[in-house]
Amino acid sequence: MAVVAYSLAVVLNLFILFIGVRFLLQPFPAAAGYGVPGTQDRAYLEIKGLRDATFGIVGLVLLAFAGAHAGAWFMLAVAIAPLGDTVIVLRHGGSKAVAFGIHFATAVVVLVSAGLLFAV
């Protein structure tokens, strides 16, 4: 189970790092994928990119140097971000499919990852 727990956590952290870098390098296409394509403020999109990239790096560092339980607490806390993203997409006219199919589903997977890491 340790391999599954660490593998899922590493994949999730690499994925959020990728999303962050995409927001930094291609902010408008990334915003469309996020669910709010009308967003035209590049600075705020880059802030989101930096936030996401930082989350990914911190998650990987915790897994590598502090272990499963520290990673689990991080994943539990960071699940707030995709839950908030769900609300943001819905409040700003994004589709329910994106809000729930991407953001809420991500929050659920992150919480599952936290549970697996706590079990290691």
Rank of each mutant, 00 (worst) to 15 (best):
A2L: 15
A2F: 13
V4I: 10
A5C: 08
A5K: 02
Y6A: 08
S7G: 10
S7M: 12
L8I: 08
V10A: 14
V10K: 04
V11F: 07
N13F: 10
L17M: 08
F18N: 05
F18H: 07
I19H: 05
V21Y: 03
R22K: 15
F23P: 00
L24H: 13
L24A: 14
L25K: 07
F28N: 08
P29I: 08
A30F: 09
A31T: 06
A31K: 02
G35W: 00
Q40V: 10
Y44Q: 14
Y44K: 13
I47L: 12
L50D: 07
R51F: 06
A53K: 13
T54H: 04
G56H: 01
I57S: 05
G59F: 02
A64E: 09
A64M: 06
F65E: 10
A66G: 02
G67F: 10
A70D: 09
G71D: 06
A72I: 01
A72L: 05
A72K: 00
L76R: 07
V78L: 09
I80S: 12
A81G: 01
L83Y: 14
L83K: 02
D85H: 07
T86D: 02
R91D: 10
R91N: 13
G93T: 13
G94I: 11
V98I: 09
A99E: 00
F100I: 11
F100K: 02
H103D: 03
H103F: 03
H103S: 04
A105E: 15
A107C: 12
V108E: 07
V108M: 12
V108C: 08
L111N: 06
S113N: 04
G115H: 12
L116E: 04
L117F: 08
F118T: 13
